[in-house]
Simulated assay, not measured.
Amino acid sequence: MRFSVTFGAVGAGRDPRGLAELARMAEDCGWDGVFLEDYLVYQGDLAEPAYDPWICLAAMASATSTIRLGTTVTPVPRRHPWQLAAETVALDHLSGGRLILGVGLGDPSDPFLTSSPRELAEKLDESLEIIDALWTGEAVQHQGRHYRLDGAQLTARPVQRPRIPIWVGGNLLNPAVRRRILRWDGSCAYKGSTGAAEQITPDDVRRLHADREAALSRSGEGDRVGGAGGFEVKVSGGEPGAFAEAGAAWWGRWIAPGPLADAREILRAGPPDR
């Protein structure tokens, strides 16, 4: 099992320079991954400045050498899919192939997301298809409800093969979210509503792996199943050992916005089993 921390790029000391220092400390203290929440306005709160996570991740990649980096999660419908495809390729090269792209619909409090949940879901699924296709370096033909590409092409490809891992966030109990998870490369989902979250259990992880195997067995029927060569489940809370036995690949800890001293204390303590 690997261990990670998640920050919001918000508040004093959580600017690109400060997050680069925290990422380097996490690497030095034995953590395996550092993830950023992706907000322009942090949870609808204008009291603290929020920083673009992709600029922060670039600074973090330059300050580290082994730790995995990524977002949990990027609200994909807030961005043009071709822009996100190009930026993730650049960051994958900058980090030497250490990027993980966590994706979701976005926070309902985000003032820059004005579409209905149904439209956001459509845009997310369509964008992921486009991003995956653009990462191949081949010309892309796409005629969808929200996006159209007629032979568009990005010649730069990710370092990672066959692609940058895509982890899906959202409510694990939502059937559409669960289907999306099974189509791609991993889960960083929560369970229940954001206002009444439930603890994911080892049995949830086992069922997710079983559903993934079933989806793979049906892939010959025409259902697209992610082909990145692996399927990783990231959880938080609970007993890491029990989750590892159930097949979870990552255990994560969220570090709330607050004094930098608190964040540094958590990082220095290291992962729970080390």
Results as ranks from 00 to 15, higher is better:
residue 64 T to W: 00
residue 67 I to T: 15
residue 61 A to R: 01
residue 62 S to M: 14
residue 81 P to S: 15
residue 56 C to Y: 00
residue 72 T to V: 07
residue 62 S to G: 06
residue 71 T to F: 07
residue 80 H to F: 08
residue 55 I to G: 01
residue 66 T to S: 12
residue 60 M to S: 05
residue 58 A to M: 13
residue 81 P to Y: 03
residue 76 V to Y: 07
residue 76 V to A: 11
residue 81 P to Q: 08
residue 60 M to I: 01
residue 76 V to F: 11
residue 84 L to T: 09
residue 65 S to Y: 10
residue 60 M to C: 09
residue 83 Q to W: 10
residue 58 A to E: 10
residue 76 V to S: 07
residue 64 T to M: 02
residue 55 I to Q: 13
residue 54 W to L: 13
residue 67 I to V: 15
residue 81 P to E: 06
residue 83 Q to F: 15
residue 85 A to L: 05
residue 74 T to E: 07
residue 55 I to R: 01
residue 56 C to I: 06
residue 76 V to R: 10
residue 84 L to G: 04
residue 67 I to S: 00
residue 68 R to D: 02
residue 80 H to Q: 11
residue 57 L to E: 08
residue 56 C to V: 03
residue 63 A to G: 08
residue 62 S to I: 04
residue 62 S to A: 15
residue 61 A to Y: 04
residue 77 P to F: 14
residue 61 A to N: 03
residue 69 L to P: 00
residue 54 W to M: 14
residue 55 I to N: 05
residue 74 T to F: 11
residue 64 T to V: 00
residue 62 S to W: 01
residue 59 A to C: 12
residue 63 A to W: 03
residue 76 V to K: 03
residue 71 T to C: 04
residue 82 W to I: 11
residue 76 V to I: 13
residue 63 A to R: 10
residue 84 L to C: 09
residue 67 I to C: 08
residue 85 A to M: 05
residue 61 A to V: 10
residue 56 C to L: 07
residue 55 I to H: 03
residue 64 T to N: 02
residue 60 M to A: 05
residue 78 R to C: 10
residue 68 R to K: 15
residue 70 G to T: 07
residue 83 Q to S: 13
residue 69 L to C: 08
residue 57 L to K: 01
residue 58 A to D: 12
residue 72 T to E: 09
residue 66 T to C: 13
residue 74 T to I: 08
residue 66 T to N: 11
residue 69 L to R: 00
residue 67 I to Q: 02
residue 75 P to G: 12
residue 72 T to C: 12
residue 70 G to Y: 00
residue 65 S to C: 06
residue 78 R to F: 13
residue 58 A to T: 14
residue 64 T to G: 00
residue 58 A to Y: 04
residue 81 P to T: 13
residue 75 P to Y: 07
residue 67 I to G: 02
residue 60 M to V: 05
residue 76 V to H: 02
residue 63 A to P: 04
residue 55 I to V: 15
residue 75 P to W: 04
residue 72 T to S: 12
residue 85 A to D: 01
residue 70 G to W: 02
residue 57 L to H: 05
residue 81 P to H: 12
residue 54 W to P: 04
residue 64 T to S: 07
residue 65 S to K: 13
residue 54 W to N: 03
residue 77 P to G: 10
residue 72 T to G: 06
residue 79 R to Q: 14
residue 75 P to C: 14
residue 62 S to C: 08
residue 78 R to W: 10
residue 65 S to F: 06
